[in-house]
Amino acid sequence: MSEVDLSGEKGWQPFDAPALVGSSLRFVSGDPEGDRFRVSYYRKPDSALVARIWFGPETEGPPEHAHGGSMAAVLDEVLGLAAWSAGYAIVVANLNINFRCLLPIMQVVQVDTEIVSVDGRKVLVRGKIWDGQEKVYTEADCLCIEIQAV
């Protein structure tokens, strides 16, 4: 498989996601050279988490396009990680996804995140998978619940 460019934009700082949450990022981020996903995380100057993700041939659903479940898995990981990187130890309670259009495989896309609100233990994170310019493939709201210390 050829090299995939997951580099960030000027001003973005690389973010070491596994250092924050450990090996729990195996499903999406676990194989950086694989044929499913390849992921690089960054922080924008406003501290928002952003990811560059390549959807490989093993994510295919409709011919030459990513399966909806693969997009849901990416949003689950990235939006949950956005809450963790903002200082909230959470689990995802609800992930509401709106699929806007088919996402062609074998290309790099961007996932932007935003912490929308915090109310007690509830953390609402919003995000989208898009081409980084104008085309939005999916948008999601993620209700996270801060976990209690064990």
Rank of each mutant, 00 (worst) to 15 (best):
S2G: 12
S2T: 14
E3S: 14
V4Y: 02
S7Q: 13
W12Y: 14
F15E: 01
D16P: 07
P18Y: 11
P18R: 08
P18A: 10
A19N: 10
A19E: 13
G22S: 13
G30N: 03
G30Q: 05
R36G: 04
R38D: 03
V39R: 01
P45T: 00
A48V: 07
V50C: 14
A51P: 00
R52V: 09
R52Y: 04
I53D: 00
I53K: 02
I53R: 01
W54M: 08
F55L: 04
P57V: 13
E60G: 08
E64Y: 06
A66C: 03
G69E: 06
S70C: 14
M71P: 00
M71S: 06
D76W: 03
D76I: 07
E77C: 10
E77D: 14
A82W: 02
A83R: 00
W84P: 05
Y88M: 08
I90H: 03
V92T: 15
N94G: 04
L95H: 03
L102M: 13
Q107A: 13
V108D: 14
V109H: 02
V109S: 06
Q110G: 05
S117P: 04
V118C: 03
V118F: 01
R121C: 03
G127D: 12
I129R: 01
I129D: 02
G132F: 13
G132L: 12
Q133H: 15
K135F: 08
V136E: 08
Y137F: 15
E139Y: 00
E139K: 10
A140G: 00
C142H: 04
I147K: 15
Q148T: 12
Q148H: 09
A149D: 11
V150S: 13
V150I: 10
